[in-house]
């Protein structure tokens, strides 16, 4: 279990307990948090679950695969700390994680 803070583009914060094994994307979608669309349901096929990982958490969330990087390359408003949240698996090590959503996923 990890407590994850999702921050919408407008600043609205949602703190959610997410089960280990789920993705950061699933934690948002299953709790109806706006800002993460995840159209493909986590197949790394659509880049609509783009988030910015807070600086302190970049190492712990790992590095994106080549597939994820290529998808992110063409997402809007990409930053060095951009990730696809369907590719970040939740574990105890991510307790306290903070991610921010972009203005739009489309």
């Amino acid at each position: 279990m990890a407590k994850i803070t999702y921050i919408e583009h407008n600043g609205a914060e949602h703190v959610i307990e997410v089960k280990n094994g789920l993705s950061v994307m699933e934690g948002a979608v299953k709790n109806n948090i706006p800002g993460i669309d995840a159209d493909c349901g986590g197949a790394c096929a659509c880049a609509t679950c783009h988030v910015y990982v807070a600086e302190a958490w970049r190492d712990k969330t790992g590095t994106p695969s080549a597939m994820e990087e290529s998808m992110l390359d063409f997402a809007e408003n990409v930053e060095p700390n951009s990730r696809l949240s369907c590719q970040i698996k939740v574990s105890d090590a991510l307790d306290g994680l903070v991610v921010t959503m972009p203005e739009s996923q489309h």
Partner: peptide, 11 residues
Amino acid sequence: NAPAEFMAGRL
């Protein structure tokens, strides 16, 4: 297996 082609192509 060509995500960049998909993403850029879609745009």
